[in-house]
Amino acid sequence: MRSSQPVGGKVVVITGAARGLGAALAEQLAARGARVALLGLEPDELAVVAARCGRNAAWFECDVTDPEQLAAAVAGVEKRFRGVDVLVANAGIAMGSPLLLAEPAAYERVIEVNLLGSIRTLRAFLPLLIRSQGYYLQIASLAALSPTPMITSYGASKAGVEAFALGVRTELAVHGVGGGVAYLSFTDTDMGRSASRSSSGVRLHDLDRAVNRLVQGIERRAPYVYGQAFIRLLRPVRGLLPGVVHRVARGPASRFEAAVAQAGPQASSPIGPGGRADTKARKFRDPETTG
């Protein structure tokens, strides 16, 4: 059991903080005395979250796939807070579609945001984390542990960030920086609710309980954090999951593909308000972008 290091007075940077898990995490950390820097694509939402967090919060509009915007956010955070103690790479989007019908740009954008965005975020903030000998928490997913038919871009990106975070953890330790991976199942956020509407029978897990587990993991500088307790039980048997999923998911996958085909191209769009915000931001920067 690792000793706990309270977050009071520490500077915590959270990406994807305009809503959902990132916003709830920022509010709970601020309530415990942390100073929080909120990064995201929705300035109006970020301002609301920052106001709820209090005077020790600041927000920065930032696309985590854009190195220039990340550099500007790093400079802004350093100017405001003089350093960073904790980095939570949470920004992410998702889409549900079989590969056969998926719009290619939207499919690949999920991987760019979730995987490359996380890598670029850590690269940008790493000098400040090294200076403070801080802690980096990568938000992954249950999808990193189990095959994910019909959301393969999301599953691939989350398996990728898990591999990245666990590998770089050793590199970080050389500099006194801690690293960890957080796993969550379907949680009651905008993204979770959007996903549940297209997946019948999906149970949404309590957001506050999941966030409390993340805060505890941050305070312990834990290598593994579980938003829901049952996920811990799956890690030792992850090698068995591909065969199980393959046997039980073919029928639902066939029905899902038929539904997507009937819905048309819009079914391949990133889901939820966060996905729409990313699509809007991309189209604003590049009018030729589609999807």
Rank of each mutant, 00 (worst) to 15 (best):
M1S: 08
S4W: 00
V7F: 09
A18N: 09
R19T: 08
L21R: 14
L25Q: 08
L29S: 04
A30H: 04
A31V: 10
A34N: 07
L39H: 06
L39P: 07
E42G: 01
P43Y: 05
V48L: 07
A50G: 14
A51C: 03
A51V: 07
A58V: 13
W59H: 07
C62L: 05
D63V: 00
V64L: 05
P67W: 12
E68P: 04
A72R: 12
A75K: 12
V77F: 09
K79L: 09
F81W: 13
V84R: 12
V86W: 09
L87T: 15
V88D: 01
N90V: 05
A91M: 13
L99F: 09
L100M: 04
L101G: 03
A102N: 00
P104H: 01
R109L: 07
E112N: 09
N114D: 11
N114E: 04
L115D: 04
G117N: 07
R120F: 06
L122I: 13
R123N: 04
A124V: 03
P127V: 03
L129N: 13
I130D: 00
I130Y: 08
I130M: 08
R131L: 02
Q133L: 03
Y135M: 03
L137A: 11
I139L: 03
I139F: 02
A144G: 12
S146N: 01
P149H: 01
I151L: 03
I151F: 03
S153P: 04
Y154K: 00
G155L: 02
A156R: 04
A156T: 09
K158D: 01
V161E: 02
V168Q: 13
E171G: 10
A173K: 14
V174Q: 06
H175K: 00
G176W: 06
G178R: 09
G178L: 09
G179Y: 06
V181A: 05
V181I: 11
L184E: 11
L184S: 15
S185C: 12
T189V: 09
D190T: 10
D190N: 10
S194N: 09
R197I: 10
R197N: 06
R197E: 07
S200E: 15
H205F: 14
V211G: 11
V211R: 10
V215R: 02
Q216I: 10
Q216W: 07
P223S: 12
A229V: 12
I231E: 03
R232W: 13
L234C: 15
V237H: 15
V237Y: 15
R238I: 14
G239I: 10
L240Y: 14
L240M: 14
G243Y: 07
V244R: 05
V244M: 06
V245Q: 02
P252C: 03
A253W: 01
R255L: 04
A261I: 13
Q266A: 15
S268N: 15
G272V: 12
P273H: 06
G275N: 15
R276T: 04
K283A: 02
F284P: 00
R285M: 01
P287K: 00
T289C: 00
G291F: 12
G291W: 14
